[in-house]
């Protein structure tokens, strides 16, 4: 049977801002979703020719190979400082960082908070999967109390390791940020909401309004030792009790 392509409407395609390179993420990982949503956003806003991705150290370190835009790799934790340097000397560029919880909320805490506090006109996408993925599943600053990792094999003990950092709430205490939100991807509704949030965060920058942070609760089936489906239920039933979803700052 033959299909007449002329009569069909294309409702889903690869974002133009993605290259043909294959993602190196594990199967079932939410990273791929976020990467794709960002690419779609860049397409929608028509900013591919002035976007610059600042990649972290972590599973998305080679993200610059996947986006069809300029890219730069930052030292672990320093993405917000690197983004600051780029944006300050060329404000026409749309500069965004993509950082995990170890990168943004542990080794890069100072750079992350101060870029937000200066109100740098950049977009920060924060992937909170409660674990160090690339190094093999160690405890992250966001690991929830009781969660087992390779460096807290009996579960995170708050007496020893403290409590998970709610970074969006920390950033929301500052005067400068214009948009701070926490999103998740465990069902279709959340994916749509997260897409809108990412688009809004980029729009803030395009409009010159200032700093925005989108924290996204994601999974890590490999290091959580769960199937993708189990990982999604874990996010929905457990993780959001520590990390409530919603907008924390939304200034006009």
């Amino acid at each position: 049977m033959s299909v007449n392509m002329d009569n069909m409407v294309k409702v889903f395609e690869r974002p133009r801002s993605l290259t043909d390179a294959q993602f190196s993420y594990c199967p079932g990982c939410h990273h791929g979703l976020v990467t794709r949503i960002i690419a779609h956003t860049i397409d929608e806003l028509g900013i591919q020719d002035r976007a610059v991705v600042v990649t972290p150290v972590g599973c998305s370190v080679i993200m610059y190979e996947w986006f069809r835009c300029d890219g730069i790799q930052a030292a672990h934790g320093r993405a917000c400082a690197v983004a600051t340097g780029i944006k300050r000397v060329n404000p026409n560029l749309i500069v965004f960082t993509y950082q995990g919880d170890g990168d943004l909320a542990a080794i890069g805490t100072a750079e992350s908070i101060h870029a937000a506090n200066r109100g740098e006109n950049i977009t920060v996408v924060f992937i909170n999967n409660q674990i160090y993925g690339m190094t093999g599943g160690q405890m992250a600053p966001t690991t929830v109390v009781g969660q087992r990792t390779t460096s807290c094999p009996n579960g995170r003990n708050a007496q020893i390791a403290g409590y998970p950092i709610r970074f969006a709430e920390v950033i929301a205490q500052l005067d400068a940020p214009v948009y701070v939100t926490r999103q998740a991807l465990y069902d279709q509704k959340r994916i749509m909401a997260a897409s809108r949030a990412i688009k809004k965060a980029f729009q803030c920058q395009v409009e010159g309004r200032g700093y925005s942070l989108v924290e996204i609760l994601t999974n890590c089936p490999t290091n959580w030792r769960m199937s993708p489906v189990e990982a999604n239920s874990h996010l929905m039933n457990e993780v959001i009790r520590t990390f409530p979803l919603g907008d924390f700052v939304d200034r006009d």
Partner: peptide, 26 residues
């Protein structure tokens, strides 16, 4: 020119890394 009193020397050198990558004498 751009000037920032950074939060640390680490942040400052990484701002340089970004600004230099954007093509400016830093």
């Amino acid at each position: 020119g751009a000037f920032i009193q950074a939060e640390s020397e680490i942040a400052a050198i990484n701002m340089c890394y970004g600004a230099s990558a954007a093509g400016v004498r830093t």
